[in-house]
Simulated scan of single mutants.
Amino acid sequence: MKKVMMKGVEAIGEAAIIAGCRNYFGYPITPQSELTEYMARRLPQVQGSFLQAESEVAAVNMMYGASSVGRRVMTSTSSPGFSLMQEGVSYMACAQLPAVFVNVVRGGPGLGDIQPSQGDYFQATKGGGHGDYHLIVLSPSTVQEAAELTILAFDLADRYRNPVLIFADGLLGQMMEPVALQEREITYDNSSWALTGAKDREPRQVTSFNIDPYGLEKMNLELQKKYREIEAKEVRYEEYLTEDAEILIVAHGTVGRIAKSVVRMARESGLKAGLFRPISLYPYPYEALSNLSERASLILVVEMSSGQMLEDVKLAACGKAKIEFYGRMAGVVPTPEEIFSHLQSLVGRR
């Protein structure tokens, strides 16, 4: 299969088209504006529709409308823009509308900067909007994986009638790597719920509103049942040199990629280190990490945040191993050398 050099955001865009996305609504914001530009150029070539909305609030509500008639839809944004979309995200989750969101995370809080960050983890995994809902959240570490997870995201969105979030960062979005993309047959069935006109069937309703509390609770219970199924079937993670690991590094996304180098450096120095990289941030791989925690004496969580995923690691480990944290914020990317140096200092204190 032929590989081509592509930016991360461009690979996500092309993968979305391969997956059958023909409607994109968005508003430019760095460091993902090239994805908006890519979709503006490519969608007309495949008889799709691109629309630059007047705001992120408008974009997410356009997605609601397009998804409700059975279209595969996507938007992309960065941290402040995704914050503006949260009301619409909650509406779509409750209405059980499939859609794919891409958040190329930048430094914050507030307007922040345009450098890479993972500081939107809580927003992504704990529900950035109101109510009891979840997005399926996928965290790629390479451009190739970003493309593959984008295709998967559309399939998962339709399978569970649920919004899916690609949780990337400015580093992954802007880097260029060889990517192999292959056309595939697009198949999905929305015949049981999409609003296509009610001439030959009973009318349907797509809504997140129910003024009867018992009726709304019934809708919520249906959602919770779906989330339990997702948690049982859609957990994804990578293990690297964990078979005999006494030290476990836990990191996701591009930091997980950096942490692989740290593991190799540790092994060369005689430390039995391994990497656990969550790929699905929701559902989080609690059970797999819990099992590894029984064998590890030290877990080092590394993030480009103040320690947001750290909470999930603590829940998974449940006191089975000593847990330490190393993080950089505001768009600062940790190097393998500084992480390894920190790891050495921790080992020296034991």
Rank of each mutant, 00 (worst) to 15 (best):
Y286M: 08
E324T: 09
M74G: 11
Q182C: 07
E54W: 11
L315F: 08
K199M: 13
S341D: 14
R328Y: 07
I211L: 15
R71G: 00
E303A: 03
E294H: 13
Y282W: 14
L310I: 09
G253K: 05
V333Q: 11
L171C: 04
A330K: 12
E287W: 02
E324M: 01
M39C: 06
I339G: 01
D244A: 10
M176Q: 13
G108D: 03
Y214D: 12
A245W: 07
D212A: 02
K233A: 12
E303I: 06
Q118D: 08
Y282C: 04
F82N: 03
S269I: 00
R106P: 02
T75N: 09
E185S: 14
P278G: 08
Q86Y: 08
G70S: 02
R264K: 13
G215V: 08
V57G: 05
L346Y: 03
I18F: 10
T150P: 01
V100S: 07
A58E: 02
M304K: 05
T142Q: 03
E145A: 02
R72I: 01
T150F: 11
E217A: 14
A15R: 07
K218D: 12
E338M: 13
G215W: 01
A146Y: 08
E14C: 03
K272I: 11
L171M: 13
N190H: 10
P334H: 09
M63Y: 06
N23W: 12
R267N: 15
M6F: 12
M74R: 04
Y284K: 03
Y121E: 02
A11T: 11
L43N: 04
S297K: 14
T335P: 05
A99Q: 11
R350T: 01
L248R: 03
V302H: 02
P283S: 07
S139R: 00
P44L: 04
L135C: 07
S306F: 14
A251S: 15
Q96G: 06
A153C: 10
P98E: 09
S49R: 15
L343Y: 06
L346T: 04
V235H: 06
Y133C: 01
T77N: 05
G26M: 10
Y38S: 02
R267P: 00
R236M: 15
